[in-house]
């Protein structure tokens, strides 16, 4: 099934929407593209929309943690939204929710990052 993704910039927020399965096989391409989008535009915050992700394992966690660290370096905040219960369990287990704020959906998350709809 694979993974597809789109990157949109709203003010200073990079919105990353993932769809499909995020595993080790998909992780590398995602990482490369994500880094390029992060550093070639004036970005401060990242919003990761997980709504259409049907599978994720610890390789996905690695990619998310890596980008989280980069956003901290930029002085911004990393927010995740629309996390399914199963993926939420994996986030919980790994302590990710202790460092990354979770919002219910993209609209709410963007509002908290100061982006007017």
């Amino acid at each position: 099934m694979g993974l597809s993704y789109s990157f949109t910039v709203k003010e200073n927020v990079l919105v990353v929407r993932l769809a499909g399965e995020l595993d080790h096989h998909e992780a590398e391409n995602l990482r490369e593209t994500w880094k390029e989008k992060l550093y070639t535009q004036p970005i401060k915050h990242v919003l990761l929309n997980m709504e259409a992700v049907t599978f994720m394992d610890s390789s996905g966690l690695g990619v998310i943690l890596g980008r989280y660290k980069e956003v901290l370096q930029l002085g911004g905040e990393f927010v995740v939204c629309s996390v399914s219960p199963m993926i939420g369990k994996i986030f919980e287990m790994s302590g990710l929710f202790k460092i990354i704020r979770q919002e219910e959906n993209e609209l709410k998350a963007l509002m908290t990052l100061g982006v007017a709809s």
Partner: peptide, 22 residues
């Protein structure tokens, strides 16, 4: 061990075994 990885340069989260055991 949670968060342990022998390959941090590959951006591994070190959570594989923790997930397996859970």
């Amino acid at each position: 061990e949670p968060m342990y990885t022998s390959k941090p340069e590959l951006e591994r989260s070190g959570m594989g075994f923790t997930i397996i055991e859970n």
